[in-house]
Design a protein around this nucleic acid. Sequence first.
RNA 1: GGCGCCAUAGCCAAGCGGUAAGGCAGAGGACUGCAAAUCCUCCACCCCCGGUUCAAAUCCGGGUGGCGCCUCCA
Length: 484
Amino acid sequence: MAVQLYNTLTRRKEPLETLEPGRVKMYVCGVTVYDLCHLGHARAAIVFDVIRRYLGRRGYEVTFVCNFTDVDDKIIARARRLKIPIGELTEQFIGEYYKDMDALGVRRADIAPRATAHIGEMIEMIEDLIEKGAAYPGGGDVYFDISRFPAYGKLSHRNLEELEAGFRVEPGEGKRNPLDFALWKASKPDEPFWESPWGPGRPGWHIECSVMSSRYLGDRFDIHGGGEDLVFPHHENEIAQSEGCFGHDWVRYWIHNGFVRINHEKMSKSKGNFFTIKSVLADTPAEVVRFFLLGTHYRHPVDYSDQVVGEAWRGLDRLYNLLLRLGPSGAGAGGEQARRMKEEADAFRARFAEAMDDDFNTARALGHLFDFARQANSLLLEAGGALPREAAAPAVEVFREVGGVLGLFGHEPEEWFRQARPGAPEEGENGQLGDTQVEELISKRTDARKRKDFKEADRIREELAEAGILLEDGPSGTIWKRRL
RNA sequence: GGCGCCAUAGCCAAGCGGUAAGGCAGAGGACUGCAAAUCCUCCACCCCCGGUUCAAAUCCGGGUGGCGCCUCCA
Protein backbone atom coordinates (compact mmCIF):
# COMPACT_ATOMS: atom_id res chain seq x y z
CA MET A 1 0.00 0.00 0.00
CA ALA A 2 1.38 3.31 -1.02
CA VAL A 3 1.63 6.44 1.06
CA GLN A 4 -1.53 8.47 0.60
CA LEU A 5 -1.22 12.22 0.74
CA TYR A 6 -3.68 15.05 0.45
CA ASN A 7 -3.03 17.16 -2.59
CA THR A 8 -4.24 20.76 -2.45
CA LEU A 9 -4.35 20.75 -6.23
CA THR A 10 -7.00 18.02 -6.42
CA ARG A 11 -8.39 18.40 -2.92
CA ARG A 12 -8.11 14.67 -2.50
CA LYS A 13 -5.86 12.13 -0.97
CA GLU A 14 -3.79 10.46 -3.64
CA PRO A 15 -1.28 7.64 -3.64
CA LEU A 16 2.28 8.88 -3.81
CA GLU A 17 3.72 8.06 -7.19
CA THR A 18 7.09 9.63 -7.55
CA LEU A 19 8.67 10.83 -10.76
CA GLU A 20 11.58 8.50 -10.20
CA PRO A 21 10.95 5.23 -8.39
CA GLY A 22 12.27 5.32 -4.87
CA ARG A 23 13.12 8.99 -4.92
CA VAL A 24 11.22 11.97 -3.57
CA LYS A 25 12.14 15.48 -4.46
CA MET A 26 10.52 18.04 -2.23
CA TYR A 27 10.68 21.78 -1.90
CA VAL A 28 9.26 23.69 1.02
CA CYS A 29 8.98 27.45 1.24
CA GLY A 30 11.17 28.67 4.03
CA VAL A 31 11.13 31.93 5.89
CA THR A 32 11.78 35.56 5.15
CA VAL A 33 14.70 36.36 7.38
CA TYR A 34 14.01 39.76 8.88
CA ASP A 35 12.94 38.72 12.37
CA LEU A 36 12.76 35.83 14.81
CA CYS A 37 10.64 32.84 13.98
CA HIS A 38 7.46 32.14 15.88
CA LEU A 39 5.49 28.99 16.62
CA GLY A 40 3.75 29.12 13.28
CA HIS A 41 7.10 28.76 11.56
CA ALA A 42 7.90 25.99 13.98
CA ARG A 43 4.81 24.04 13.03
CA ALA A 44 5.52 24.27 9.32
CA ALA A 45 9.11 23.23 9.87
CA ILE A 46 8.17 20.33 12.13
CA VAL A 47 5.40 19.09 9.87
CA PHE A 48 7.63 18.91 6.83
CA ASP A 49 10.49 17.60 8.92
CA VAL A 50 8.31 14.67 9.95
CA ILE A 51 7.06 14.10 6.41
CA ARG A 52 10.58 14.09 5.17
CA ARG A 53 11.79 11.75 7.91
CA TYR A 54 8.87 9.41 7.38
CA LEU A 55 9.38 9.16 3.65
CA GLY A 56 13.02 8.47 4.35
CA ARG A 57 12.07 5.76 6.83
CA ARG A 58 9.67 4.41 4.25
CA GLY A 59 12.63 3.76 2.01
CA TYR A 60 12.59 6.76 -0.27
CA GLU A 61 15.71 8.65 -1.03
CA VAL A 62 14.53 12.14 -0.22
CA THR A 63 16.02 15.34 -1.51
CA PHE A 64 14.73 18.18 0.60
CA VAL A 65 15.16 21.80 -0.39
CA CYS A 66 14.06 24.68 1.83
CA ASN A 67 14.91 28.24 0.92
CA PHE A 68 15.62 31.51 2.65
CA THR A 69 14.02 34.65 1.30
CA ASP A 70 16.79 37.12 1.99
CA VAL A 71 15.63 40.12 0.03
CA ASP A 72 12.22 41.71 0.28
CA ASP A 73 10.44 44.88 1.41
CA LYS A 74 10.43 44.05 5.08
CA ILE A 75 14.07 43.11 5.09
CA ILE A 76 14.97 46.34 3.36
CA ALA A 77 12.83 48.39 5.71
CA ARG A 78 14.29 46.80 8.78
CA ALA A 79 17.86 46.99 7.62
CA ARG A 80 17.37 50.63 6.86
CA ARG A 81 15.96 51.29 10.29
CA LEU A 82 18.96 49.55 11.84
CA LYS A 83 21.29 51.29 9.39
CA ILE A 84 22.96 48.05 8.37
CA PRO A 85 23.28 46.29 5.01
CA ILE A 86 20.54 43.78 4.33
CA GLY A 87 23.13 41.01 4.17
CA GLU A 88 24.10 41.64 7.74
CA LEU A 89 20.48 41.51 8.85
CA THR A 90 19.64 38.35 6.96
CA GLU A 91 22.84 36.65 8.08
CA GLN A 92 21.87 37.32 11.65
CA PHE A 93 18.36 35.93 11.31
CA ILE A 94 19.45 32.91 9.34
CA GLY A 95 21.66 32.22 12.32
CA GLU A 96 18.73 32.61 14.69
CA TYR A 97 16.59 30.42 12.45
CA TYR A 98 19.09 27.60 12.69
CA LYS A 99 19.42 28.00 16.44
CA ASP A 100 15.66 27.71 16.83
CA MET A 101 15.14 24.88 14.40
CA ASP A 102 18.13 22.93 15.69
CA ALA A 103 16.71 23.31 19.18
CA LEU A 104 13.38 21.97 17.94
CA GLY A 105 15.11 18.98 16.42
CA VAL A 106 14.24 19.97 12.87
CA ARG A 107 16.73 18.32 10.57
CA ARG A 108 18.44 20.69 8.23
CA ALA A 109 17.47 20.69 4.58
CA ASP A 110 19.74 18.98 2.10
CA ILE A 111 19.95 22.28 0.30
CA ALA A 112 19.02 25.65 1.80
CA PRO A 113 19.40 28.13 -1.04
CA ARG A 114 19.23 31.87 -0.60
CA ALA A 115 17.38 34.06 -3.03
CA THR A 116 20.19 36.56 -3.39
CA ALA A 117 22.53 33.83 -4.55
CA HIS A 118 20.31 33.12 -7.55
CA ILE A 119 19.53 36.54 -8.94
CA GLY A 120 21.22 35.79 -12.26
CA GLU A 121 19.08 32.72 -12.79
CA MET A 122 15.98 34.66 -11.89
CA ILE A 123 16.81 37.24 -14.52
CA GLU A 124 17.27 34.44 -17.02
CA MET A 125 13.91 32.97 -16.20
CA ILE A 126 12.22 36.34 -16.45
CA GLU A 127 13.82 36.95 -19.83
CA ASP A 128 12.63 33.56 -20.91
CA LEU A 129 9.09 34.42 -19.81
CA ILE A 130 9.21 37.70 -21.72
CA GLU A 131 10.40 35.89 -24.82
CA LYS A 132 7.54 33.47 -24.51
CA GLY A 133 5.12 36.34 -24.23
CA ALA A 134 4.13 35.43 -20.71
CA ALA A 135 5.61 38.53 -19.13
CA TYR A 136 6.15 42.15 -20.01
CA PRO A 137 8.35 44.97 -18.76
CA GLY A 138 6.81 48.22 -17.64
CA GLY A 139 8.57 51.18 -16.08
CA GLY A 140 11.57 49.22 -14.85
CA ASP A 141 9.34 46.49 -13.45
CA VAL A 142 8.49 43.22 -15.10
CA TYR A 143 5.09 41.62 -14.65
CA PHE A 144 3.72 38.21 -15.30
CA ASP A 145 0.78 38.36 -17.69
CA ILE A 146 -2.02 36.42 -16.06
CA SER A 147 -4.08 36.45 -19.23
CA ARG A 148 -1.49 34.20 -20.85
CA PHE A 149 -1.94 31.48 -18.31
CA PRO A 150 -5.50 30.15 -18.51
CA ALA A 151 -4.93 27.64 -15.72
CA TYR A 152 -4.37 30.46 -13.24
CA GLY A 153 -6.30 29.66 -10.08
CA LYS A 154 -6.05 25.90 -10.32
CA LEU A 155 -4.32 25.50 -6.99
CA SER A 156 -6.44 27.89 -4.95
CA HIS A 157 -9.53 26.83 -6.90
CA ARG A 158 -10.61 30.25 -7.96
CA ASN A 159 -11.35 31.69 -11.32
CA LEU A 160 -10.27 35.03 -12.67
CA GLU A 161 -13.68 36.63 -12.27
CA GLU A 162 -13.79 35.77 -8.59
CA LEU A 163 -10.32 37.06 -8.09
CA GLU A 164 -10.91 40.28 -9.93
CA ALA A 165 -14.08 40.92 -7.99
CA GLY A 166 -12.23 40.97 -4.71
CA PHE A 167 -9.03 42.53 -5.86
CA ARG A 168 -7.79 45.75 -4.39
CA VAL A 169 -6.36 47.96 -7.09
CA GLU A 170 -2.96 49.30 -6.24
CA PRO A 171 -2.28 52.64 -7.80
CA GLY A 172 0.87 53.67 -9.60
CA GLU A 173 1.90 50.33 -10.99
CA GLY A 174 2.54 49.53 -14.59
CA LYS A 175 0.32 46.49 -14.67
CA ARG A 176 -1.95 45.66 -17.55
CA ASN A 177 -4.21 43.60 -15.38
CA PRO A 178 -4.63 44.08 -11.65
CA LEU A 179 -3.89 40.41 -11.07
CA ASP A 180 -0.58 40.51 -12.88
CA PHE A 181 2.24 40.18 -10.39
CA ALA A 182 5.78 41.48 -10.27
CA LEU A 183 8.62 39.29 -11.40
CA TRP A 184 11.09 42.10 -11.10
CA LYS A 185 10.80 45.37 -9.23
CA ALA A 186 12.71 48.50 -10.11
CA SER A 187 14.64 49.68 -7.10
CA LYS A 188 13.89 52.99 -5.48
CA PRO A 189 16.74 55.31 -4.52
CA ASP A 190 18.77 53.99 -1.58
CA GLU A 191 17.46 50.48 -2.00
CA PRO A 192 19.72 47.54 -2.63
CA PHE A 193 19.63 46.52 -6.28
CA TRP A 194 20.98 44.19 -8.93
CA GLU A 195 21.61 45.19 -12.50
CA SER A 196 19.21 43.74 -15.02
CA PRO A 197 18.10 44.24 -18.61
CA TRP A 198 15.30 46.38 -17.19
CA GLY A 199 17.53 48.54 -15.08
CA PRO A 200 18.55 48.27 -11.45
CA GLY A 201 16.10 46.36 -9.33
CA ARG A 202 15.36 43.24 -7.35
CA PRO A 203 13.32 40.11 -7.86
CA GLY A 204 9.68 39.79 -6.91
CA TRP A 205 8.94 37.29 -4.21
CA HIS A 206 7.50 34.42 -6.19
CA ILE A 207 10.18 33.99 -8.82
CA GLU A 208 12.80 32.81 -6.37
CA CYS A 209 11.00 29.59 -5.54
CA SER A 210 10.48 28.70 -9.18
CA VAL A 211 14.14 29.29 -9.89
CA MET A 212 15.66 27.62 -6.87
CA SER A 213 13.43 24.57 -6.94
CA SER A 214 14.14 23.88 -10.60
CA ARG A 215 17.80 24.57 -10.08
CA TYR A 216 18.13 21.91 -7.42
CA LEU A 217 15.31 19.52 -8.22
CA GLY A 218 14.72 19.91 -11.93
CA ASP A 219 11.80 21.42 -13.79
CA ARG A 220 9.46 18.79 -12.43
CA PHE A 221 9.45 17.47 -8.91
CA ASP A 222 7.24 15.57 -6.51
CA ILE A 223 6.20 17.60 -3.51
CA HIS A 224 5.95 21.31 -2.85
CA GLY A 225 4.94 22.42 0.60
CA GLY A 226 4.34 25.39 2.82
CA GLY A 227 1.84 27.00 5.12
CA GLU A 228 -1.69 27.24 3.84
CA ASP A 229 -1.42 31.00 3.70
CA LEU A 230 0.96 30.53 0.79
CA VAL A 231 -1.59 28.84 -1.43
CA PHE A 232 -2.68 32.17 -2.76
CA PRO A 233 -1.06 34.10 -4.23
CA HIS A 234 2.44 32.74 -3.70
CA HIS A 235 2.07 29.16 -4.87
CA GLU A 236 -0.48 30.06 -7.49
CA ASN A 237 2.01 32.50 -8.93
CA GLU A 238 4.82 30.01 -8.76
CA ILE A 239 2.76 27.63 -10.83
CA ALA A 240 1.98 30.31 -13.39
CA GLN A 241 5.62 31.25 -13.78
CA SER A 242 7.02 27.77 -13.80
CA GLU A 243 4.50 26.16 -16.07
CA GLY A 244 4.52 29.23 -18.26
CA CYS A 245 8.26 28.93 -18.56
CA PHE A 246 8.73 25.18 -18.74
CA GLY A 247 5.67 24.51 -20.84
CA HIS A 248 4.52 21.51 -18.86
CA ASP A 249 3.08 20.44 -15.51
CA TRP A 250 5.41 21.30 -12.74
CA VAL A 251 4.72 19.94 -9.27
CA ARG A 252 2.85 16.73 -8.62
CA TYR A 253 1.70 17.13 -5.01
CA TRP A 254 1.04 20.30 -3.06
CA ILE A 255 1.00 19.97 0.71
CA HIS A 256 -0.07 22.77 3.03
CA ASN A 257 -0.04 22.84 6.78
CA GLY A 258 -2.66 24.52 8.95
CA PHE A 259 -2.08 27.45 11.26
CA VAL A 260 -1.13 27.74 14.85
CA ARG A 261 -3.72 29.86 16.59
CA ILE A 262 -4.01 31.86 19.73
CA ASN A 263 -7.56 32.10 21.04
CA HIS A 264 -8.92 30.75 17.79
CA GLU A 265 -7.11 33.30 15.69
CA LYS A 266 -4.23 32.76 13.33
CA MET A 267 -0.91 33.51 14.93
CA SER A 268 0.79 36.16 12.88
CA LYS A 269 3.22 38.99 12.98
CA SER A 270 0.69 41.53 11.86
CA LYS A 271 -1.82 40.58 14.55
CA GLY A 272 0.93 40.66 17.11
CA ASN A 273 -0.44 37.53 18.77
CA PHE A 274 2.64 35.42 18.31
CA PHE A 275 5.07 33.60 20.53
CA THR A 276 8.59 33.30 19.28
CA ILE A 277 10.18 29.89 19.33
CA LYS A 278 12.73 31.22 21.75
CA SER A 279 10.13 32.38 24.22
CA VAL A 280 8.32 29.06 24.07
CA LEU A 281 11.50 27.04 24.48
CA ALA A 282 12.44 29.12 27.50
CA ASP A 283 10.04 27.11 29.62
CA THR A 284 8.93 24.20 27.46
CA PRO A 285 11.15 21.36 26.26
CA ALA A 286 11.40 21.15 22.49
CA GLU A 287 10.00 17.64 22.50
CA VAL A 288 6.89 18.81 24.27
CA VAL A 289 6.41 21.40 21.55
CA ARG A 290 6.83 18.75 18.87
CA PHE A 291 4.60 16.30 20.66
CA PHE A 292 1.95 18.94 21.14
CA LEU A 293 2.04 20.03 17.52
CA LEU A 294 2.01 16.47 16.22
CA GLY A 295 -1.02 15.66 18.32
CA THR A 296 -3.20 17.39 15.74
CA HIS A 297 -3.36 16.46 12.10
CA TYR A 298 -1.08 18.74 10.10
CA ARG A 299 -3.87 20.21 7.98
CA HIS A 300 -6.00 21.23 10.94
CA PRO A 301 -5.48 24.35 12.98
CA VAL A 302 -4.00 23.98 16.46
CA ASP A 303 -4.77 26.31 19.29
CA TYR A 304 -1.81 27.05 21.45
CA SER A 305 -2.27 27.71 25.15
CA ASP A 306 -0.46 26.98 28.38
CA GLN A 307 -3.15 24.57 29.41
CA VAL A 308 -2.99 22.48 26.30
CA VAL A 309 0.79 22.40 26.32
CA GLY A 310 0.71 21.31 29.95
CA GLU A 311 -1.58 18.45 28.99
CA ALA A 312 0.77 17.46 26.20
CA TRP A 313 3.68 17.55 28.59
CA ARG A 314 1.97 15.18 30.99
CA GLY A 315 1.12 12.89 28.11
CA LEU A 316 4.71 12.78 26.94
CA ASP A 317 5.77 12.11 30.51
CA ARG A 318 3.67 8.99 30.46
CA LEU A 319 5.55 7.72 27.46
CA TYR A 320 8.91 8.61 28.93
CA ASN A 321 7.86 6.87 32.09
CA LEU A 322 7.47 3.66 30.18
CA LEU A 323 10.94 4.14 28.76
CA LEU A 324 12.16 4.64 32.29
CA ARG A 325 10.55 1.38 33.38
CA LEU A 326 11.98 -0.47 30.41
CA GLY A 327 15.47 0.63 31.32
CA PRO A 328 16.64 -1.33 34.34
CA SER A 329 16.89 -5.00 33.69
CA GLY A 330 14.89 -7.17 36.03
CA ALA A 331 15.90 -10.57 37.16
CA GLY A 332 12.73 -12.51 36.55
CA ALA A 333 11.94 -15.07 33.96
CA GLY A 334 10.43 -12.90 31.30
CA GLY A 335 9.97 -15.56 28.65
CA GLU A 336 6.26 -15.22 28.27
CA GLN A 337 6.34 -11.44 28.60
CA ALA A 338 9.21 -11.24 26.17
CA ARG A 339 7.23 -13.07 23.55
CA ARG A 340 4.19 -10.88 24.02
CA MET A 341 6.23 -7.71 24.13
CA LYS A 342 7.63 -8.59 20.75
CA GLU A 343 4.12 -9.19 19.43
CA GLU A 344 2.81 -5.93 20.78
CA ALA A 345 5.77 -4.01 19.41
CA ASP A 346 5.31 -5.52 15.97
CA ALA A 347 1.59 -4.84 16.01
CA PHE A 348 2.22 -1.24 16.99
CA ARG A 349 4.85 -0.81 14.31
CA ALA A 350 2.29 -1.86 11.72
CA ARG A 351 -0.40 0.46 13.06
CA PHE A 352 2.01 3.33 13.21
CA ALA A 353 2.94 2.82 9.57
CA GLU A 354 -0.70 2.56 8.61
CA ALA A 355 -1.51 5.86 10.29
CA MET A 356 1.49 7.62 8.79
CA ASP A 357 0.76 6.21 5.36
CA ASP A 358 -2.64 7.84 5.59
CA ASP A 359 -1.67 11.42 4.91
CA PHE A 360 0.89 11.52 7.71
CA ASN A 361 -1.65 11.12 10.45
CA THR A 362 0.62 11.71 13.42
CA ALA A 363 -2.31 12.23 15.76
CA ARG A 364 -3.61 8.76 15.09
CA ALA A 365 -0.09 7.36 15.22
CA LEU A 366 0.36 8.83 18.69
CA GLY A 367 -2.93 7.27 19.75
CA HIS A 368 -1.54 3.89 18.77
CA LEU A 369 1.62 4.69 20.67
CA PHE A 370 -0.36 5.19 23.86
CA ASP A 371 -2.17 1.92 23.26
CA PHE A 372 1.14 0.21 22.91
CA ALA A 373 2.42 1.91 26.04
CA ARG A 374 -0.51 0.57 28.03
CA GLN A 375 0.17 -2.96 26.81
CA ALA A 376 3.85 -2.66 27.58
CA ASN A 377 3.11 -1.32 31.06
CA SER A 378 0.81 -4.25 31.66
CA LEU A 379 3.50 -6.70 30.72
CA LEU A 380 5.89 -4.89 33.01
CA LEU A 381 3.37 -5.19 35.79
CA GLU A 382 2.96 -8.90 35.17
CA ALA A 383 6.71 -9.32 35.28
CA GLY A 384 6.89 -7.62 38.63
CA GLY A 385 7.89 -4.18 37.46
CA ALA A 386 10.94 -4.88 35.37
CA LEU A 387 11.91 -7.05 32.45
CA PRO A 388 15.21 -8.58 31.43
CA ARG A 389 16.96 -6.47 28.85
CA GLU A 390 16.24 -8.86 25.99
CA ALA A 391 12.56 -8.87 26.84
CA ALA A 392 12.34 -5.09 26.93
CA ALA A 393 14.42 -4.65 23.80
CA PRO A 394 11.63 -4.87 21.19
CA ALA A 395 9.72 -2.12 22.95
CA VAL A 396 12.73 0.12 23.33
CA GLU A 397 13.57 -0.47 19.72
CA VAL A 398 10.15 0.44 18.37
CA PHE A 399 10.22 3.59 20.50
CA ARG A 400 13.54 4.49 18.90
CA GLU A 401 12.08 3.94 15.48
CA VAL A 402 8.98 6.06 15.84
CA GLY A 403 10.99 8.57 17.84
CA GLY A 404 13.31 8.83 14.89
CA VAL A 405 10.40 9.70 12.66
CA LEU A 406 8.62 12.08 14.98
CA GLY A 407 11.72 13.59 16.52
CA LEU A 408 10.78 12.37 19.98
CA PHE A 409 12.39 10.32 22.74
CA GLY A 410 15.80 11.74 22.13
CA HIS A 411 16.54 11.96 25.86
CA GLU A 412 17.52 9.40 28.40
CA PRO A 413 14.37 9.00 30.47
CA GLU A 414 16.17 9.74 33.74
CA GLU A 415 17.43 12.96 32.26
CA TRP A 416 13.97 13.77 30.90
CA PHE A 417 12.42 13.75 34.33
CA ARG A 418 15.22 15.73 35.87
CA GLN A 419 14.77 18.81 33.78
CA ALA A 420 13.25 21.80 35.48
CA ARG A 421 9.50 22.20 35.37
CA PRO A 422 7.79 25.57 35.26
CA GLY A 423 7.15 26.87 38.73
CA ALA A 424 9.91 24.77 40.25
CA PRO A 425 12.41 26.59 42.42
CA GLU A 426 14.96 28.42 40.35
CA GLU A 427 18.61 27.49 40.34
CA GLY A 428 20.36 28.95 43.32
CA GLU A 429 17.11 29.82 45.00
CA ASN A 430 16.32 28.63 48.42
CA GLY A 431 15.43 24.97 48.25
CA GLN A 432 17.01 24.17 44.93
CA LEU A 433 19.17 21.10 45.16
CA GLY A 434 21.85 19.77 42.88
CA ASP A 435 21.79 16.21 41.59
CA THR A 436 24.45 14.98 43.97
CA GLN A 437 22.69 16.47 46.98
CA VAL A 438 19.48 14.81 45.88
CA GLU A 439 21.21 11.50 45.56
CA GLU A 440 22.87 11.77 48.93
CA LEU A 441 19.52 12.37 50.54
CA ILE A 442 18.02 9.46 48.68
CA SER A 443 20.69 7.11 49.90
CA LYS A 444 20.14 8.32 53.47
CA ARG A 445 16.47 7.65 53.02
CA THR A 446 17.15 4.21 51.62
CA ASP A 447 19.17 3.40 54.74
CA ALA A 448 16.35 4.67 56.91
CA ARG A 449 13.87 2.52 55.03
CA LYS A 450 16.05 -0.52 55.54
CA ARG A 451 15.96 0.20 59.26
CA LYS A 452 12.18 0.59 58.93
CA ASP A 453 12.67 4.11 60.17
CA PHE A 454 9.77 5.36 58.10
CA LYS A 455 9.50 8.54 60.05
CA GLU A 456 12.97 9.57 58.93
CA ALA A 457 12.31 8.26 55.41
CA ASP A 458 9.19 10.37 55.12
CA ARG A 459 10.98 13.37 56.50
CA ILE A 460 13.51 13.12 53.70
CA ARG A 461 10.78 12.59 51.14
CA GLU A 462 9.14 15.74 52.43
CA GLU A 463 12.37 17.69 52.38
CA LEU A 464 12.94 16.73 48.77
CA ALA A 465 9.34 17.44 47.86
CA GLU A 466 9.78 20.98 49.06
CA ALA A 467 12.70 21.31 46.69
CA GLY A 468 10.51 20.11 43.83
CA ILE A 469 11.83 16.56 43.85
CA LEU A 470 9.49 13.62 43.58
CA LEU A 471 10.60 10.16 44.65
CA GLU A 472 9.35 6.89 43.28
CA ASP A 473 10.25 3.63 44.95
CA GLY A 474 10.38 0.81 42.48
CA PRO A 475 11.66 -2.74 42.20
CA SER A 476 15.04 -1.51 41.10
CA GLY A 477 15.46 1.17 43.71
CA THR A 478 14.38 4.72 44.16
CA ILE A 479 14.28 7.11 41.25
CA TRP A 480 13.64 10.81 41.36
CA LYS A 481 11.99 13.37 39.15
CA ARG A 482 11.83 17.10 39.19
CA ARG A 483 8.30 18.24 39.65
CA LEU A 484 6.38 21.29 40.54
C1' G B 1 -18.85 40.84 -1.18
C1' G B 2 -16.31 36.18 -3.52
C1' C B 3 -14.07 31.36 -2.39
C1' G B 4 -13.00 27.76 1.31
C1' C B 5 -12.27 25.17 6.07
C1' C B 6 -14.03 23.70 10.81
C1' A B 7 -17.95 22.28 14.80
C1' U B 8 -16.88 14.97 18.37
C1' A B 9 -16.95 14.14 26.54
C1' G B 10 -14.80 19.25 31.49
C1' C B 11 -10.13 20.26 28.06
C1' C B 12 -7.23 18.39 23.62
C1' A B 13 -8.07 14.99 19.66
C1' A B 14 -8.68 10.58 15.81
C1' G B 15 -12.59 9.21 12.74
C1' C B 16 -13.70 9.71 5.48
C1' G B 17 -21.19 4.84 5.27
C1' G B 18 -21.41 -0.33 9.43
C1' U B 19 -22.92 1.31 14.91
C1' A B 20 -17.58 6.62 18.86
C1' A B 21 -9.16 5.58 18.96
C1' G B 22 -6.05 8.00 22.22
C1' G B 23 -4.26 11.81 25.78
C1' C B 24 -5.17 15.31 29.94
C1' A B 25 -8.44 16.08 34.05
C1' G B 26 -12.09 13.44 37.35
C1' A B 27 -14.44 9.04 40.19
C1' G B 28 -13.90 4.01 42.15
C1' G B 29 -10.66 -0.27 42.74
C1' A B 30 -5.71 -3.07 42.72
C1' C B 31 -0.64 -2.49 44.06
C1' U B 32 2.44 0.39 47.87
C1' G B 33 5.28 1.09 54.98
C1' C B 34 3.68 6.16 52.89
C1' A B 35 3.75 8.28 48.12
C1' A B 36 4.43 8.24 43.03
C1' A B 37 4.33 5.37 38.83
C1' U B 38 1.47 1.47 36.72
C1' C B 39 -2.85 -1.65 35.80
C1' C B 40 -8.41 -2.45 35.90
C1' U B 41 -13.34 -0.14 35.79
C1' C B 42 -16.45 4.22 34.96
C1' C B 43 -17.19 8.98 32.25
C1' A B 44 -20.11 11.21 24.48
C1' C B 45 -26.80 9.40 21.52
C1' C B 46 -20.66 13.31 17.63
C1' C B 47 -23.95 22.08 17.02
C1' C B 48 -29.39 22.31 15.14
C1' C B 49 -33.28 20.97 11.33
C1' G B 50 -34.54 18.21 7.12
C1' G B 51 -33.14 14.38 3.36
C1' U B 52 -30.58 9.85 1.01
C1' U B 53 -29.58 4.72 2.85
C1' C B 54 -31.01 -1.67 5.53
C1' A B 55 -27.32 1.44 8.09
C1' A B 56 -24.76 8.48 8.76
C1' A B 57 -20.33 11.64 13.46
C1' U B 58 -19.27 10.26 8.48
C1' C B 59 -23.10 11.62 2.14
C1' C B 60 -26.76 15.79 0.36
C1' G B 61 -29.67 20.45 1.45
C1' G B 62 -30.75 24.43 4.93
C1' G B 63 -29.54 26.90 9.46
C1' U B 64 -26.33 28.59 13.70
C1' G B 65 -21.49 29.48 15.54
C1' G B 66 -16.04 29.85 14.83
C1' C B 67 -11.92 30.57 11.46
C1' G B 68 -9.01 31.33 6.96
C1' C B 69 -7.74 33.22 1.99
C1' C B 70 -8.87 37.18 -1.46
C1' U B 71 -2.79 42.39 0.88
C1' C B 72 3.08 40.71 3.51
C1' C B 73 2.58 36.16 6.16
C1' A B 74 4.45 29.20 7.87
